[in-house]
């Protein structure tokens, strides 16, 4: 079998495992059985490994770390979402987050399939070890922001739907642990906190990514900052999440307001990630679709 077909086989296997995970996490919402959870989690692990394998085969084939066009970039973000979700799910023992996360993963991986996938030689500016540090770090922060967004949406929906002070059985540890029934407030706080934690991890990563980008630009062009649209927009995203963090530490805004601010932050991130490429001006035109 050729390297290309191996690359595809791994990719499709990942999709296959994600569908099984979808079934598990769907069942979990109907019936909170820890076994569904274990099954779902395990499938996400397998899917993650398959995607890593696919990217690895592709990199071998291209003879450079395959992270130079939209297809590869979206694949890397998806791997990041897998990793972040696996960690969060273990950490907080969640019930509701799995389903929307897996739906989103499936959507983006299917969307990705119709992007051009040919391997092209690297242009001079991209032949640098900085590329293999700068880009993945930023993409990992995007993955975290995506999770913060999903968690904020789950929070907002639940917040709107749930009658006040109805006992909920969201968090398994709290449910099965020594304590009594946690209250609705606790559930809301939990998703609020997941949003916060993702942002609290994402912001340092994005900052580091932007800083490394600056160092790379200084090495390649002699400018660590040139107000190029992609740069400016990534700064806008960072400022957006900066607003979120400061609103949070000021302790004078409700969780609902904060959730909306994080949704705006995610929109800014989407503009940075897709929008600027569509405009097609500036130095970062490598990521153009097609």
């Amino acid at each position: 079998m050729t390297a290309e077909s191996w690359e595809q086989n791994w990719y499709y296997s990942a999709l296959f495992f994600l569908f099984i995970a979808l079934a598990f996490y769907g069942a979990l919402i109907i019936k909170p059985n820890p076994r569904f959870k274990e099954g779902g989690w395990g499938c996400v692990v397998l899917s993650c490994l398959c995607l890593i394998a696919s990217l690895f085969v592709r990199s071998q084939n291209a003879q450079y770390f395959a992270l130079s066009n939209m297809y590869e970039s979206l694949l890397t973000v998806s791997i990041g979402i897998h990793l972040a979700f696996l960690t969060l799910d273990r950490w907080f023992n969640l019930k509701l987050l799995g389903l929307p996360v897996i739906c989103l993963l499936l959507f983006s991986l299917f969307y990705n399939l119709q992007l051009p996938t040919e391997i092209h030689p690297l242009q001079p500016a991209l032949q640098s070890y900085w590329r293999s540090i700068h880009v993945p770090i930023i993409l990992l922060s995007y993955a975290l922001f995506t999770l913060s967004f999903i968690s904020a949406i789950v929070f907002l929906i639940k917040d709107a739907l749930e009658p006040k002070y109805q006992p909920i059985t969201e968090n398994f540890t709290l449910m099965l642990g020594a304590g009594g029934m946690p209250e609705r407030q606790e559930f809301a706080k939990l998703y609020d906190e997941i949003t916060y934690r993702c942002i609290a991890f994402g912001v340092p990563l994005l900052t580091l990514g932007i800083i490394l980008g600056g160092m790379w630009a200084n090495e390649a062009w002699g400018n660590y900052w040139s107000w190029d649209p992609k740069e400016s927009m990534s700064l806008v995203t960072l400022l957006g999440y900066g607003v979120y963090l400061h609103m949070r530490v000021s302790e004078s805004y409700s969780a609902k307001v904060l959730a909306w601010v994080s949704v705006i932050g995610f929109m800014l991130m989407l503009i940075t990630y897709f929008g600027v490429n569509l405009m097609g001006v500036g130095l970062h035109s490598y990521g153009k679709i097609g």
């Binding site: 107000w227 649209p229 400016s232 927009m233 700064l235 806008v236 400022l239 957006g240 900066g242 607003v243 400061h246 609103m247 530490v249 000021s250 004078s252 800014l268 600027v276």
Partner: peptide
């Protein structure tokens, strides 16, 4: 104050975004 920081961050955000949206 942190409140001023929030206001300034929002203003900077909007200004930086103007520079992206308006051709420079």
């Amino acid at each position: 104050s942190v409140q001023l920081a929030i206001v300034l961050l929002v203003l900077l955000l909007v200004a930086t975004m103007l520079g992206v949206l308006i051709p420079q």
